[in-house]
Amino acid sequence: MKTGLTVSTLLHGALLGFGLIALSAPAALEVADVEAFPVDIVPVESITQIQQGNREAPVAERAAPTPTERPHTVPDARNAGENDVDLETNSNAEASRREVRTAALPESQPTPKPATPGEQVREQPKPAPTPATEVTPEPQPRQEVTPEPVEEAAVAENPEAEAIKLPENAPSPQARPQPPQAQTAKAPERRNAEEPANAPAEKPKASDTEFDLASVDNVLRNLEDAAGGGGARSSEQAALGGERTTTGEKLTQSEMDALRQQLNDCWLRPAGMSDEDLRTSVRFSLDQSGRLAGPPRIEATSGNRQFDESALRAVWKCDQAGLRVPSDRYEAWAEVLVTFDPEML
């Protein structure tokens, strides 16, 4: 036994010694250095909620357009600029003016019935809703400039609001019961910026809703101006921002998608129309609890009555089931415009 133990101990000693030498330092694994770069997760609101400011200016806590020297001549001007008249378009940009068709305008403007002009206007396929409230209430009586039956009817309905809110209710008084919509002052500017030369059919709407001399002047001259220019003065230091301000209360893309998904689940597509190129836009207002505040309206018809009605039914059906909307941001979904498209939805 002694020999066995000795031999065994010697063998183990030798093995350990060999292990200490041969297995002492395993070669370090060569791993290429990967440079880590930081990734910021930016909420989409920071892009969609741009404040008015100067694109070249440095970042400040509060965005502001470039300071101006000329004194304020328009008290309620909304668009930054140095004009004497608060325009959404730059009247100085003579070079970019374009002549628009002249023949169509006078025919579409004098719409006889008080209710229909608003609807006709609504049915145009516009990408952004144009709330009627962005115009500042002006002291001039409306009848003097555009003596249309629409305004008269509106005035007759609520004479007490004439002084302040008269222009708001002018285009479609009974179909728009949404005061919060008044805050979204963004849309008309966007419409002008994105579609500088609209079809003449849109002209009467502009004259209906925006009551100022400049737009009337544009209408009369059948001229559409390029974007830029306004009467608002800024005395603050220029800071980074967009050319237009936003209220910041818009549905984010993901929230919009969630809403679309709900409507899509409610939507029963009319049989045999899925392959046709049909799409319709539906506008509906919601109250604070997320229920329909009024009947949904077809904003832009697909031309197919059955298809349009299926979209309306989808909204009703979703309202029955209860639309799920972010409850803390009522402003964002007080009024919703959804395009029903068999491919998109």
């Binding site: 036994m1 020999t3 066995g4 133990l5 000795t6 031999v7 065994s8 101990t9 063998l11 183990h12």
Partner: peptide, 17 residues
């Protein structure tokens, strides 16, 4: 375990012999 291994090998060698 090292001791057990040493003892095992001692037994193995011893027994083989």
């Amino acid at each position: 375990l090292l001791a057990a291994s040493i003892w095992c090998w001692a037994i193995i060698i011893d027994k083989a012999m």
